[in-house]
Design a binder for these strands. Structure first.
Length: 199
DNA sequence: CGGAAGATCCACT
DNA sequence: GTGGATCTTCCGA
């Protein structure tokens, strides 16, 4: 299976957010690997998108990587305790990003459970059905900030082709602050998938 | 320098 | 459905 190159991400975040569905996200550990199939993603469309960290052309210490070439990781901490994983989209100077919201475990369930630190009762489909659940499951933190998607510890494979009929478009989640943009259908997920968040 | 808010998750009711 | 955890980042004064 082929590894995705940076070029895959150097298009509009709207295209990438749809196309990334079904792709495999691989995390390599010395003791094994974890594979997640991407089942949900959102597009953040840069300077004109009130929900985006780069709205109005804002540049800060946190978001500056968004202005770089597509295909770099944008990781940030939220609510003081969780990490969120994005991939920068489009060309240098166009600060768009794709927010990875949920995945389905393909391989490495034991490692995922270990990393999530859950004991006793839980459902398997609650392990990776949210943005910060993924970063916990794959041990992704700020050390990946600005790294390439062609990195050897965290990268994507072509995965599965998702038919147009199986793609759902919906408004993005938890962006009440964004006014009208709250309603833009820039969230993409696989129809009927058990691992999609907020169902 | 202070304060507010946050692309979340979990436990509890 | 509601609220608490937890703390960095950002902006305004």
């Amino acid at each position: 299976m082929k590894k995705l190159k940076k070029e895959f991400f150097q298009r509009s975040a709207l295209i990438v957010a749809r196309e990334i569905l079904g792709k495999y996200l691989i995390r390599e550990f010395p003791y094994g690997k974890v594979i997640l199939k991407i089942v949900e993603a959102e597009a953040y469309m840069g300077v004109d998108d009130p929900a985006s960290h780069s709205y109005g052309g804002k540049i800060t210490e946190r978001n500056k990587v968004m202005y770089e070439d597509g295909g770099l990781y944008y990781v940030y901490k939220i609510y003081g305790m969780h990490y969120c994983l994005n991939v920068v989209a489009n060309k240098k100077g166009i600060p768009e990003a794709v927010f990875i919201r949920a995945g389905e475990p393909i391989q490495g369930l034991e490692i995922i459970k270990e990393n999530r630190g859950l004991k006793g009762n839980f459902k398997v489909n609650q392990l990776t059905n949210g943005p910060s659940k993924i970063t916990q499951a794959l041990k992704i933190d700020l050390s990946f900030y600005g790294k390439s998607v062609e990195d050897s510890q965290l990268y994507f494979l072509e995965g599965e082709k998702i038919k147009e009929a199986d793609v759902v478009r919906a408004p993005r989640v938890n962006i009440d602050y964004a006014g009208e943009a709250k309603f833009y259908p820039w969230r993409f997920y696989i129809r009927g998938n058990e691992y999609v968040s907020c169902r």
